[in-house]
Design a binder for these strands. Structure first.
Lengths: 112, 112
DNA sequence: TTCTCATACCTTGTTGCGCGAGGTATAGTC
DNA sequence: GACTATACCTCGCGCAACAAGGTATGAGAA
């Protein structure tokens, strides 16, 4: 199955989740917290976004998970698969292209 | 009626259209062309995106339009209203926040 | 004890947006 | 007479983001 592109927009949850997990294994709640901290609240994925996203990503074979008991609580740790790593490169490149495009539009007209 | 935020994502068509029209009056086909050129094809809104977007923006009072006959063809020129101008500031600020957030995530981990 | 807060997971339903695929019409060129 | 560029439009699909809800544990305060 060929991986579809997010055509143009969005896919930010996918992008940032893949990016964080590219560094180290993390569990859902931790991802949410890290995202909030790193982005200074500019990016805060609600749990209604995050968890479904994680499940979808795993179903697509981009992540794999394993549960772990820590202090009586269940955490589900996710890590990137090799497919996930390749996917990250794609969506990151995509983001950059789009982002630069927008910046050019926003910056245009300086020569008025 | 209070203007809703695009919560987190997207709204790029709205953003770039408002931004272009902030500079000068333009018609739909011209907007599409300009977008393609300025962004070096990174941003190309299909007509199935652009025209509905223009209509929606006008319906929300952010644009106003006037038809003009040029060389036997009808062009519909759009320009920003003052509400549109205010809206542009909002969505542009929004974009920057979001964009910087993403960049921080993408750039994170350099200290590994 | 009970209350509340932080941790940690989850699902359901709605909505709106981006998009592809189509459709109309004129002007000019080959 | 066909083809391209200009110039507008609509319908309908799919999906992703979101809000709002739900479960359960552990720790500390009241």
């Amino acid at each position: 199955m060929t991986e579809r592109d997010p055509t143009l927009m969005s896919g930010i949850p996918e992008l940032v989740v893949l990016r964080l997990l590219a560094q180290r294994e993390m569990y859902g709640y931790e991802i949410a917290r890290t995202l909030r901290v790193l982005s200074a609240d500019a990016l805060s994925l609600g749990e209604g976004v995050l968890y479904p996203a994680l499940h979808a990503l795993e179903a697509r074979g981009l992540l794999c998970s394993r549960p772990r008991q820590v202090a009586g609580r269940t955490r589900i740790y996710y890590q990137l698969t090799s497919r996930g790593r390749r996917r990250l490169e794609r969506v990151a490149a995509n983001w950059r292209g789009m982002s630069e495009g927008v910046e050019r539009i926003l910056g245009a007209g300086a020569h008025e």
